[in-house]
Amino acid sequence: MSDGREIVIDVRNVVKTFDEGHTRALDGATLQVRRGEFVAITGPSGCGKSTLLHLIAALERPDSGEIVVYGEEITRRRDLSAYRARTIGLVFQLHNLLPNLTAAENIQVPMYETDLSAGQRRRKALELLALVDMADKARKRPAQLSGGERQRVAIARALSNDPPILLADEPTGNLDSKAGLRVLEVLRGIQRQRGVTLVLVSHDPTIAAAADRIVRMLDGRIIEEGASAEAAARVV
């Protein structure tokens, strides 16, 4: 897909091994993602899709290769916290909300790394809850929410510092199909409304079909990529 939009994520021939080199999770993976694009990464379990997402999120560093985000080689940065706080919003398969905090308080957690006051943080959290259609659940703790609701709170938390890139690792993996589709709808809506770049990892073809482009991985490599059928249908 080369529609003239700027390439914001450029993964170049990345290798990542675990177990002292015995397990090769990524074996020369290369991927480009343009601004505002919705890319789904699919493939069988253990193919390296979550590892690729973790590397883009700078949760760990590759053994070799380069990852350039907004023109900057992130693997050479000493402190990646600011990058993770400002450029990336992360949604995990498990919601990973703090159990002792309410929905609104959970959304404020990444904002502690900003200069926002407590009042500003709270107001912003409430706006984000409204964005994911959870305005009435601000005071609920994770244990009081359904799986889909928790995941929507996690999406709102990922957006708390207005990142231009949203990375979602199997965000519907633990949800039933109805809740999963609702979460997907929220993610898709945010990507369109806010123009964020969305990279989503999923083994579910139904979920992946909602993307602009689908990238298939096998044994640590990208073996195929192209516009999804749904995207193709939209173009037609």
Binding site: S81, Y83, R84, R86, L90, F92, N96, V109, R157
Partner: peptide, 16 residues
């Protein structure tokens, strides 16, 4: 442990 990993992933600095 997992929670601290999540906080780091959400952009918390070591100092925080």
């Amino acid at each position: 442990t997992r929670e601290f990993g999540i906080l780091r992933a959400l952009g918390w600095r070591t100092r925080r």
